[in-house]
Design a protein around this nucleic acid. Sequence first.
DNA 1: TAGGCCATCTGGTCCT
DNA 2: AGGACCAGATGGCCTA
Length: 223
Amino acid sequence: MDRTFSDYDPSSRLSFSTSEDEDYSSLQSPSPYSTGGDHTSPAQSPEKCEEEEKKKRRGRSRVKNEAVLHTIKKTRRVKANDRERNRMHNLNSALDELRSILPCFPDDTKLTKIETLRLAHNYIWALSETLRLADQTKDKPHVELVKPGYMSPAAPLSPGSDAESWMSTASPSSSSSFSTCTSNPSSPALSDDCYYGHPENFFSLQSIPQNFLQNSPCFVQFQ
DNA sequence: TAGGCCATCTGGTCCT
DNA sequence: AGGACCAGATGGCCTA
């Protein structure tokens, strides 16, 4: 990595020219361009020389001033980078927490960020669907537990089933080719080709209601 | 080796 | 003014 944190270390100010380092205290003076008060021998010099001297001083002050601005900018950038890093770390921590409570979380592999979010979305939907169906069965004991439309004929995907062969026909070949669900989040079951989660352990939206009903309380573990 | 995923930097914009 | 948030760029690591 070419760009490292140290590249932006405010201490790199030390690499500035020595002419800038010689009088860094002047940076705190209100006006680097101020010429009053510190002239020791203006009366002896001809006006032209005095003007040239002033020009030189102004030039040096300008360089110093630019150096200070540069340093301030660098310092702010370093601080902003630090905050951004922390922010992303917090975001990743939250994602880790989310991963830890999701079902079908393999021990040896880690869901990617997008897989985590999609699986969480699907999981929430499945839980709410389970609650809804549970309410229905409470009111009507003879109601059909699984809506026929939810089940893919070739996808029972109950624990111990031949999930591998099922996935070979129903799943994308890799996580990178997962289709993006653009259907209404409130009714994901309407989309037949919507898959979430890790490729080796994902939900089919069609099979979730049955699995959740079969494996109450709401924990699906394929394989 | 190409592609996916990730961490980090960066500048812009919005918000307090 | 300074911090939060965002999206783009970049480079490293890993895997098929």
